[in-house]
Design a binder for these strands. Structure first.
Lengths: 214, 214, 214, 214
DNA sequence: TATGAATGAGGTTTCATTCAT
DNA sequence: AATGAATGAAACCTCATTCAT
């Protein structure tokens, strides 16, 4: 007797990756709500109860996707921005890595992230991801500021970081929607917006409204 | 004696507004999918068939909300930024009006953008709204640039505008989530990010990546 | 002051005909269930409550259509088959008139009739119509039979009549579905089937199964 | 002790038959539109989603009924009319089998034809069934005609076949409505109408209208 | 481990029909 | 006489989720 090719009884870790692959694909294509567990299971070549057994409910599955893709992104960025480099260089490398990743996974990360923004159940998860993004992308500002001996109010920093992350997310969307666009160039553009603004702020230049009636 | 309030047999225009009010409220609270036509109808104090008769399908109803709230927002901004003012003043007034509106209509904003961004069926509608925002908020940049005799590639301008609008949307989200925050202060912060960056760009300062291997 | 053209306040009889025209049109095009009172009212240029006031519920309205069109058909046939003519001539003239009528109202009578056959609520009405058809189309057989001094069981006659009417209805369907077909020719074909068969029966020729095992 | 009857977790094939049984029953009793998926599911002793999962939409379910009943009918007729028999004998056996089947499955018949005739969505399906009926019931005429060396125009044959099938359907309706009636006798009556007419035609006797004015 | 079978619950949508003006 | 406004009721359909094998 020869042993038949084995497609089943794979170890759990492998199965989970298959499921997540399918889930990311389907969630991206259809959106969170339009995606059905049926389609995901079928696409993963596995039965629905297995999906539930391994990865839990639909929401949990989506969070798992977010998690895996987010982690991959953070890893892609991690090695790029060494702490000993000057601030602008670190920011640039971080942005380049970020847009490079988004460009390479146009139908993965960006779409999932966009989906998550609209749905309340993922608010918590999203806050975490955003926090990590801020840590890498905008946290450098704080570092640089302190290096120059400046103090900025906490809220101020949070808000500016929020703005920068928002701009970055927005360009990531744009990139995901324009298959022919160049990630490197997009990163450069973002850098222009972020750094020239941030650079001014770092040097103590701030803008104030003129005193006007009304 | 004043006439007692009549709750029945109202003219169509009035009922439509009531329905839209309710729809905006419910869509904001629950999100597009979790919102049920039942709840919207009940909240509007009317039966479901009337909603369908006047505003059509659930998607159409959502689009109608988008339309009304978007129009209101644009009107709120329209009068604020007179074309004869200098660029920074116009931008500032536009931003102030925008954040003022968002602060005063947090529900509307949540419906307008946060919900719409995630769902494919509203991509077109949203593009239209964003285009109008760009026209008012970021189109000034183009005007100012040309006034200084500079040329910027179309894509460049689109992408920078996209980034600015993204940053603005992001702060609007932040504002909608922080009921105690001051719209005016938020507008000032955004102005700092946008203008100090934009100001540099206007004066021909641009950032380029240093030549590095890899 | 000149009197404006008057479109309203028409006498009841006129309005009813307008409604029936519209109803026949819509019922034919959409079928009984797919037709909506809204569409009928709109097509008649009148408001729904008027339809209910004049012609009652949807079922009653359909019956009214059936009635009017059926009556018209009977009138069209009535003068054609004079009782003093020989049986085959009477049958032929009746058939010719019938198919002529059906051909001239391809989207009226035949379609309504076809609709009615499938729906239980109209069984009674339909029985009446069929009875009238039998009276004109197949009742002649009885007359001729008696003239030849033959006796046929009641059930026998009913069944044969039923068969002939069924064949006729079937060809009416066929005619309604074939816009290019010639009613006169169709009548001739039906006559061949009906008369050559009926003719044999009239002369006492009947068919019997051979005695076979099983 | 015998194993107690199990009502749950039946294999798909079994459940599908149960569902079709229920559907045929309910469609017959209520008509296509008045029938509700709820009632069908309940009658099949299963939940609605299973019906949708196995048999699809309401229309598809109806078509499935049509198919099953139609196939059964054709099978019932198939073995009855051997090709080597003389034409009248074949026709007679075919009719006897047909009316026998209708008498034994009055529900099936009602679904098969009466319902389907009135509804446009099933026109195609019905045409197919009718075509098959014509093949068996009336196609013999063609065979017999050619055996006698006669030629008949295609349209002529189609129309005559249509008339015969119409007559047969009509008698089937009559049979379905008269529970006490004898299928065999009904078949004999139909045979009289069909064969004595067809017999004449086979021998070259045709009827023509006399030349009359108008 | 793995899955076919099964369902509770809920959502959108449509319509015939009637008030109240 | 005539109608815009209004609704109760019900239908179809889908989906996340779990049992029982």
């Amino acid at each position: 007797m020869s042993t038949p090719p084995t497609f089943k009884r794979l170890p759990r870790a492998v199965r989970e990756q298959q499921m997540l692959d399918a889930a990311v694909k389907v969630f991206s294509r259809r959106g969170f709500h339009a995606a059905s567990m049926d389609e995901i299971a079928e696409d993963a070549g596995i039965s629905k109860p297995m999906v539930y057994a391994y990865l839990g409910t639909k929401e949990e599955l989506f969070v798992a996707c977010l998690h895996r893709e987010g982690t991959r992104m953070m890893q892609a960025i991690a090695g790029a921005a060494a702490p000993e480099l000057p601030a602008d260089e670190r920011l640039w490398r971080g942005l380049r890595a970020f847009f490079g990743f988004v460009g390479a996974h146009r139908d993965g990360w960006a779409v999932l992230y966009r989906q998550a923004r609209g749905e309340q159940p993922f608010a918590g998860e999203l806050a975490g991801m955003r926090a990590r993004l801020v840590e890498v992308v905008a946290g450098m500002l704080d570092h640089a500021l302190r290096a120059e001996g400046r103090e900025v109010g906490e809220t101020d920093l949070e808000v500016v970081a929020y703005a920068l992350v928002g701009a970055t997310e927005s360009l990531a969307d744009w990139l995901a929607d324009h298959p022919e666009a160049d990630p490197e160039k997009t990163a450069t553009r973002m850098m222009n917006v972020a750094w020239l603004g941030a650079g001014q702020l770092l040097h103590g230049v701030t803008w104030h409204p003129r005193v006007t009636p009304g």
